[in-house]
């Protein structure tokens, strides 16, 4: 039974990782054609940094993700505090509307924004892409922050004011530290969604501004430049290391807590 379980888990993980491993292996293959092994090489890793298209896509991907997640976190956190303090009626309407982009298929969100930009005669490009990313990020921030506000003691803020704190001082010293875990979760969530988005970006960007997903999509028909494989190998290993470090640290922490 134990063997069967191990075997099953092994098979599933093989299924999940086979394409990723294949992709990594072929990033070292000295051949432009996919699936054809032409001997070991590191040239795709060198060419990667010379490839204008990929480098520009990487630049836009990271820039958009950083800007969109930061702006969305600011707007979303303020909005969450406001919504938290609203009357029941207003709150319900806003919360339901906020759910919409999370529930709606990406393609509908993307198309609706594209129609809006065309309707308003805004030329699609960096600015519209950023607006779209902020728009789909905000709900995730709001729903990450809201539970923390609910858990917070209502009277803490009032107590701070009674003790002579100005509202902004009380916000910085009382509310913000309390909701910080939610804010950070929201920020990370927004960043990862933004980095990985294809569908919404595809409909809301214009000529000259592409993120990595769009470049990969346009390459897919003719065959993907092996430099992309090299880039994703590098990105994948970075993420893997980061996750392992975080995991190691948090499991060390929990062991310490258990020991205490």
């Amino acid at each position: 039974m134990r063997f069967l379980k191990r075997f099953y888990v092994g098979i599933i993980f093989f299924f999940l990782y086979a394409p990723i491993i294949i992709l990594m292996i072929f990033s070292f293959s000295d051949s432009k054609f996919r699936g054809h092994w032409g001997g070991f090489t590191l040239r795709w890793y060198v060419e990667l940094f010379r490839d204008r298209e990929i480098m520009s896509a990487l630049y836009y991907t990271v820039l958009i993700a950083v800007l969109a997640s930061l702006i969305a976190t600011i707007i979303g956190t303020i909005a969450a505090i406001g919504i938290h303090n609203m009357g029941k009626f207003g709150r319900n309407i806003i919360i339901n509307l906020t759910y919409l982009p999370m529930l709606n298929p990406d393609i509908v969100t993307g198309i609706s924004l594209m129609i809006l930009f065309v309707f308003l005669k805004v030329e699609r490009g960096f600015f519209t892409l950023l607006l779209a990313h902020i728009t789909f990020n905000i709900p995730y921030v709001i729903f990450a922050v809201m539970p923390k506000l609910k858990q917070m003691n209502k009277h803490l803020y009032e107590a701070a004011l009674d003790l002579g704190a100005t509202p902004s001082y009380a916000f910085r010293k009382v509310i913000l530290p309390e909701i910080m875990p939610g804010v950070v979760t929201g920020l990370i969530l927004a960043f990862t969604l933004s980095i990985d988005d294809f569908v919404i970006s595809y409909f809301t960007t214009g000529a000259g501004v592409s993120n990595l997903s769009i470049v990969i999509h346009s390459m897919a028909r003719l065959g993907i430049n092996p430099s992309i494989n090299a880039l994703s190998t590098l990105m994948f290993i970075t993420v893997l290391l980061l996750l392992l470090i975080v995991n190691k640290r948090s499991s060390n922490n929990s062991r310490k807590e258990n020991a205490v």
């Binding site: 990723i20 992709l23 996750l243």
Partner: peptide, 16 residues
């Protein structure tokens, strides 16, 4: 972890 790799690329890898 697989979800951290670009989803288009993961799908494309199946072509290989």
């Amino acid at each position: 972890i697989p979800m951290w790799m670009n989803f288009l690329l993961r799908t494309y890898a199946w072509l290989t």
